[in-house]
Each structure stands twice: as structure tokens, then as C-alpha cells.
Amino acid sequence: MSDAARIAEEARRADIRTRWWLTAPALFILFIAAVGPLFVVLLFSLMVKGDYGDVKYWQFSTDGWFSVFFERDIFDDTVGLAQAHMEILWRSVKLSLITTLLTLLVGFPTAYYISIQPPKKRDLLVFMITIPFWTNILIRTFAMQEVIRNEGVINTLLIWAGFIERPIQIMYTDWAIFFGMVYVYLPLMVLPLYASMEKIDFRLVEAGYDLYAGRFQVLRRVIIPLVKPGIVAGSILVFIPSLGAYVTPRVLGGGKNLMLGNLIDLQFGQGKNWPLGAALSITLLVIVTVALLVYVRNASRQGGGHGH
């Protein structure tokens, strides 16, 4: 090995070592208060359920895992796929996907608009995005009810303006849920988007126009690729938490259908089946982790492509 190669190799090692030191505090906190305790959940999923919640320690069983995917029919005793769990999982995934898409549709223009303002106004607007979130989610959801209910602001305004004669039923529909979810998760989309938009190099945009691209083409071919890391971050931040959301679906949607969050909650609560709750959570964790890793890998590979 030549000296140069050896020195480069050593520098690389030193660099990696520094990078481990820099990550150490975060990893340490996460290990104590997030990842480590999760092993408890993994253990729980493999134990016999306690009679009234909790588990019977060190008595192992795969019942929890079995009932995530299969169920013994309570009426005719046949074993089949746990249809209810699948339906609830699918409902939650669908809700999260639509929420992510909607927040992106609303959040992208908003973040962009903020990022092209003069710096001082920019800071103000960013702060303004987060101010509503200084109030608790429950009370925000209650306030939203006042906006969309039949005697609420929107309906009153529309009737007053003569657009409609009778109030439109928004409360207790899927629309109410989407409205509420977008409202709740919007800053999680706008802030990362803004963070990556704020330093768009507009010379590239200008170059686009010089090449006779239209507004839309510039947006699609220049701006969106440039802010892709922000889109990825924002989508992750909205998609995953909304998978577990259930306050908004309950208050605004009426709560007649279970969400994944409720289902897991039920097992740790009135269902008194902690192993099933634990197994359900780990299933969710595995699905999301795999999806995320594939996504991030692809995104960073493409991201590295356009070079600096």
C-alpha cells in the first residue's frame, strides 16, 4: 500500500471515529429511553398474557404473534386470517397516505412561498406556522369542530353568502378526518420543506428559464429535485405518526371505526392482551422500518446523482 493510500485510509478511519463520537449522545439517549425499552416489548410479545393485563413473566408462548395474523373464529372455531386486523391496518395506511399527500400539496406551496420572502419576513412566517401548535392537540381539535360542524363557521358563512341552503355535513365524515389530520400534521411537512428550500440556488432556476422551460417544467425538473431531501423528511414525519393517530379520527370522524392506534391501545387497555398488543406494534415497526430504509437508500442514491 502506498503512503498516500495509507494516509487516506487513516484519515477515513479518523473521520468515521469522529462521526461515531458525534452520534454517541443521541444514540445513548435513544438507547435508554426508546430502543432499549423496546426489547421489553419484544419479550412481552413472546410471553403468555396475564389474566388482567400485563404478562406472565418467563412463560413463553407464540399466541400473541399467532393472533396478529390469524384468528380462531369465536363462533365456528375455524382458523382463518385475522381479517379485522387487516382491515384496520389497511384503513390506517390509507389514511396516512392520503394525509401525507394532502399535507404535501398544501405544505409545498406554503413552504416555497415562505422561502422566497425577504429573510426577516421569512423567520416571522416560519414562526407563524408553529404558533397554533403551542396549544394542545385536543383543544385544537375541539376548535376545529367549531369550524366544520353544521352550525360552524364554514357552513354559516356559506349559507350567509347564499352558496348553499342547508348546511353541508362535514363532521363525522372522512372529510372531517382529512381536514383535521392535515391541520395537525402540517408543520411537520412545512418546516423540513422550508429548511431545504431556503437555500435553493436560483441561478439553476434561471438557467431553466434560459432554456425556455415553462413555470411548471422548472418546478418539476429543477425545484422539486433540489428540495427532494426536504420532501422525504417531511413525508416521513407526517406518514409515520399519522399511522398511529386516533384523537383526530375520534373527535372529528366520530370514532366509529378503529384505527391501528386504537387497536393497539385496546389490547393494552380493556382487551387485556399485552402480548397481542406488543406483537401488533412490532409488526408495524418492522413494516415501517423496511419501507423507510428502502426509501431513504433510494432517495440518497438519487440525491447524490445530481452533484454539487
Partner: peptide, 21 residues
Amino acid sequence: AMINQPLMVPEIVTAVSLLIV
């Protein structure tokens, strides 16, 4: 994976595991 883990677990699960630990 470590850093993003808290995002991926429903709150109730983190809550119960933290309670135990």
C-alpha cells in the same frame, strides 16, 4: 434506524415499555 425509531412505534407501545423500565 436508531435515530428514527421513536417515530415508528405507536406512542402507547413506547409508553408501556418506558413504564416497565
